[in-house]
Design a protein around this nucleic acid. Structure first.
Lengths: 348, 348
DNA sequence: CCTTGTATAGAAAGCGCTTGCTGTGACGCT
DNA sequence: AGCGTCACAGCAAGCGCTTTCTATACAAGG
C-alpha cells in the first residue's frame, strides 16, 4: 500500500541502493540516473520512511528542545531562536531536521521522561532551556541521563541554565545573580530601603540566583533583610498579584517591589493599583527578562533584559556543531538593566 | 556498545520476543518472567530503540503540533493544552507519546516541509493550530498533504483553523468573524463612528475573518467605511504601534482603534499615549484573544476572549481518539466579548 | 592490446524490534 | 488414562532503509 524505496527503484529501473544514494546525496550518482530516480520519486509521491532510515543509519534528525512552560514567551522566544538555527525547514542550515519542543511544565518527572524519549529516538541533539530543579536526586538523575545522551553521540546544550557538573553538556548560563543585584542596586540608589521581593518556585536555580543577587545588593548597602519581605510563588501574574497584596499587608510602608520576572511584576502592578497606590510615586516595581509586553506596561517596566533570542540562536548553532562551544564548555550571558518608568525615587 | 533487546533477553534468560512483550505489555507474560526481564532491563540500563520499534510495528508515538509562532502566547497556550492531553510524560493518557511542537513561522514552505517530515516519521497524529494561509496553490498543497496523512492513518485535527475541504481533518474553528463583529458592535453602541482597524498579515484566514466581522458591524450600523481606515501589518506590537501612528495621521478625529489581536492593541495603546491621547477618553482601543497580559494593560483591554486552552485540550483529546469528533467533523468555538476599561464613550 | 584507474551501479548483509505462528508443559475433563 | 485447553514462551520472518563490498564499463597509459 505505501510506496517504498524498492518501488521507486523498480520504477526508475535501478537498484534500491541507488535510490537511497540519490536521496541522501553523498555518493556519486550519474546525473541521468539521478534524474530518473527523482522523477520516479515524484511520480510515486514517495516519502522516505523516517524510522527505517534512522534504524539503518543509526542516526536521526530529531533535535529536542526542553522548555518549562511553552505558554510563557520567555521560553517561546528561546525555542523559536533555537529552532531557527537548528535549521528546521527553511532554516539556514542544510539538512532538514525536526526540531521538537517538549513542554516539561516544570515537572522533574516529565523532564526525565522526555529525556528518555529523546534518547529512545536517538536524537541528534538536545537543548534544555531555563532554570534547573535543585532537588538533589533529580539533578543527579538528569546529569546521569545527560551523560548517557552525550555518550551516545547526542549533543547536549543548556541554554539559560547553569552548567551540569560531570557532564559533557555545553552551558550558556544567564547571569541571573548579577542581573538581580544590579536591579536592586538601582532601586537602592534611588533611595529605597524597604523592598519586597516576590520569588519564583523555590527550588529552581533561576529563582535562587535572582534572589541571591537581590540579597547581595541589600547586604552591600547595609540593609538588613526582613525574611517576611520575601514571598514565594510561581512565575505568573496571579502569583505576583497575590504576593503583592500580602506584602502590602505585612508592611504598608513598602516602597518597592522586586519581582522574579516580568509576568509577576505585571501582577504586582495590578495589585498596587487596586490598592490605590501609584507607580512609581508610591511604590516602584521591577521585573526581570524584559519580555516584549514589558515596555508596554504603564508605566513601562524597569527590568533586566536577557538576550533570549541571541542566546537561543547560539545554543542552536552549538547544538548543530556550527559554532565552537565556549572555552571550558561554559559561558555566562549577562543581562542589561533597563531603567524605565516603573521605578522612581521613593516618597518622602 | 549499545544495549539491545537481545542483550536483555540473554541476561534474563528468555527470548527477545518475551522481552518485547514485557515492554509493550499487551501479551500475557508470567509474573516471574516479567520481573526477571524488568530486572535485566534495569541492570543493563536498557532503552528501547525508537526507530527500530517504529519500523517493526509500523507506528510511532510522535504527535506533531504545528504553530505559526511559538513565541506568541496565543500559540503557546494552545500548544500547552494540546500537549497535556496528548499525554506526553505525566499527562493523563497512558502511553508515552512525544508531542513535538513545530514552529512554521507563518511560512507556507515550512508548514509543508514540517508536514512532510511528520509524514516521514509516520506521526500518530498532527494538530495544526491558528489561521491558515489563503494562498491558493499552497492551500491545495496542504490539503493534499493532509489527505495523504489521514490516508496513512495519521489523525489530523485543526485547532483555531477553518475546516479544510475534501479532507478527513477534524476542525475546531474559532468564530473570528462573529467575535470581530460583536466587538465592533460594542464600540458602535458606545457611540463610535470613526474607527480605525489594524489587521494582521493579509492572507491569513484569521485576519480576513476578524476584519469581515468588523466590516459587517459597520455595515449593519450604516457606517460607510473609508478604505484608508484599515492598516495591514503583523500580529505584533510594533505593527500596532506604527499602524496607529499612521491612522492618526490620516484621521486625527478617530475615536477608536480596533486591533487584530491583543499584542497589536498594546502597540496601539503605546502610540496613542505617546501622541498625548488618553484611553478611552480620547480614543478607545480593542484587541482580540484576551491573552493573560491583556487584563494587566492600563487601562485593561476590551477584547474577545478565545478559549484557547479549552479548544487545545479538546483538539488534543480528539487527536488521541479519546473524544468523539464533532458531528460533521467541524465545530465552531465562540469567543466571548470582554468589555474592560480601554473602551468608552467617545469624546464630544 | 593489455593493464590500471576511475566512475558508477548492484548484491546482500544487517540495523533492532514486533508479531503470527508454533510448540510445550500443566491442568482439568470425561 | 487419554485428550482437549490454557497459559506461556520461542522461532523466525520480516519492517524499509543504509552501506560495505564487489562488479562492470569505459578511458587512459604503457
Amino acid at each position: 500500500m505505501t510506496v517504498t524505496l524498492a518501488d521507486v527503484a523498480a520504477r526508475a529501473q535501478v537498484s534500491p541502493a541507488t535510490v537511497s544514494r540519490v536521496l541522501n546525496g553523498n555518493y556519486p550518482v550519474a546525473t541521468s540516473t539521478r534524474e530518473r530516480v527523482l522523477k520516479a520519486v515524484d511520480e510515486l509521491d514517495y516519502v522516505l520512511n523516517g524510522p527505517a532510515s534512522a534504524l539503518a543509519a543509526a542516526t536521526s534528525d530529531l533535535v529536542g528542545i526542553l522548555v518549562n512552560d511553552i505558554a510563557d514567551p520567555f521560553f517561546g522566544i528561546m525555542a523559536s531562536a533555537i529552532q531557527s538555527e537548528i535549521g528546521g525547514p527553511g532554516g539556514r542550515a542544510g539538512g532538514e531536521r525536526l526540531a521538537v519542543v517538549c513542554n516539561t511544565g516544570g515537572s522533574p518527572e516529565r523532564e526525565l521522561t522526555y529525556l528518555t524519549l529523546l534518547q529512545r529516538q536517538r536524537a541528534a541533539a538536545v537543548v534544555l532551556t531555563g532554570g534547573a530543579m535543585e532537588n538533589e536526586p533529580h539533578a543527579a538523575a538528569v546529569a546521569s541521563k545527560l551523560r548517557k545522551l552525550t555518550d551516545a553521540g547526542t549533543r547536549v546544550v543548556l541554554c539559560g541554565r547553569p552548567p551540569a557538573p560531570d557532564t559533557a553538556a555545553i552551558a550558556l548560563a544567564f547571569d541571573n545573580r548579577g542581573g538581580g543585584q544590579r536591579l536592586t542596586e538601582h532601586l537602592i540608589g534611588l533611595g529605597h530601603r524597604r523592598l519586597g521581593y516576590i520569588a519564583g518556585p523555590e527550588e529552581r536555580t533561576t529563582t535562587r540566583h535572582r534572589l541571591e543577587g537581590h540579597r547581595a545588593a541589600l547586604a552591600a548597602a547595609g540593609i538588613e533583610e526582613d525574611p517576611r519581605s520575601t514571598m514565594w510563588g510561581r512565575y505568573d501574574r496571579t502569583s505576583g498579584y497575590e504576593a503583592t497584596l500580602e506584602l502590602l499587608r505585612r508592611d504598608p510602608s513598602l516602597t518597592a517591589v522586586v519581582a522574579a520576572n516580568d509576568s509577576v511584576a505585571l501582577g504586582a502592578c495590578a495589585a498596587l493599583r487596586e490598592s490605590g497606590l501609584r507607580i512609581p510615586e508610591d511604590v516602584s516595581v521591577a521585573g526581570f527578562d524584559d519580555l516584549p509586553f514589558s515596555v508596554d506596561a504603564v508605566p513601562a517596566l524597569t527590568t533586566v533584559r536577557l538576550p533570549l533570542a541571541e542566546a537561543g540562536a547560539r545554543a542552536g548553532r552549538i547544538a548543530m556543531g556550527r559554532e565552537e562551544p565556549p572555552p571550558g564548555g561554559t559561558a555566562t550571558v549577562r543581562g542589561e538593566l533597563m531603567v524605565r518608568g516603573s521605578s522612581g525615587v521613593p516618597r518622602g
